[in-house]
């Protein structure tokens, strides 16, 4: 059984801000029914670009629901600029931590938020830069490199836990391993250099 924190259980059993939001002027969606989890985030943003209300609809495990609930609580009252700085780690911290295997739930929160902000600003999120690695979960090499560097991921298992990449059909696992290996090798040479 997962070792969920009390806060995760509390937000799962009594999620805050559930449902569609009437008068929402920004929406961000991520995940799909096929993936096994999905989040639709609704924001109401005022003329000063401040988030005055936020709600969510989530399909997923307990930590996906808790992460969504936490996200709405964190960003309510923030300006869009501040909200744009919220990371998946902030969401996990707010919940008193998430099991390693469930970190992708917080990543999903961050992704939906990014999309909602872009939606409000009328920015099209373009095709992701980089080369597609995991088709099952739509993850590129640049995203993997980024996650390895920022979150200190050590192996393919970590990558799957954070980004889900590799957790579907598994055909991309060799490629992920190669990317992790190269990225870490590059990190080590650069850290010994200074």
């Amino acid at each position: 059984m997962w070792n969920y924190s009390e806060k995760v259980m509390e937000h799962f059993l009594k999620p805050r801000n559930v449902g569609e939001l009437e008068g929402a002027n920004a929406v961000g969606e991520t995940g799909s029914l096929n993936c096994g989890d999905a989040l639709k985030l609704y924001l109401k943003v005022n003329e000063n670009e401040r988030i005055i209300d936020a709600t969510f609809m989530t399909f997923g495990c307990a930590s996906a629901v808790a992460s969504s609930s936490a996200l709405t609580e964190i960003i309510k009252g923030m300006t869009l600029d501040d909200a744009a700085k919220v990371t998946n780690d902030d969401i996990a911290d707010y919940l008193g931590g998430l099991p390693k295997e469930k970190m992708h739930c917080s990543v999903m929160g961050q992704a939906a938020l990014k999309k909602a902000i872009a939606d409000f600003r009328g920015i099209q999120i373009l095709e992701k830069p980089g080369e597609m690695v995991c088709e099952c979960f739509d993850v590129t090499d640049l995203e993997i490199i980024d996650a390895v560097k920022k979150n200190g991921l050590e192996n393919t298992e970590d990558v799957t836990n954070y980004l889900k990449a590799g957790g579907g059909c598994g055909k991309c696992l060799d490629r992920i391993e190669e990317i992790v290996h190269k990225t870490r090798a590059a990190m080590e040479t650069s850290s010994t250099a200074d």
């Binding site: 993936c35 096994g36 989890d37 495990c61 295997e101 836990n161 889900k164 957790g167 579907g168």
Partner: peptide
């Protein structure tokens, strides 16, 4: 019916 203990969300 899912193998989510492995971190994979796949059924």
């Amino acid at each position: 019916g899912s193998a989510c203990t492995s971190g994979s969300l796949d059924p």
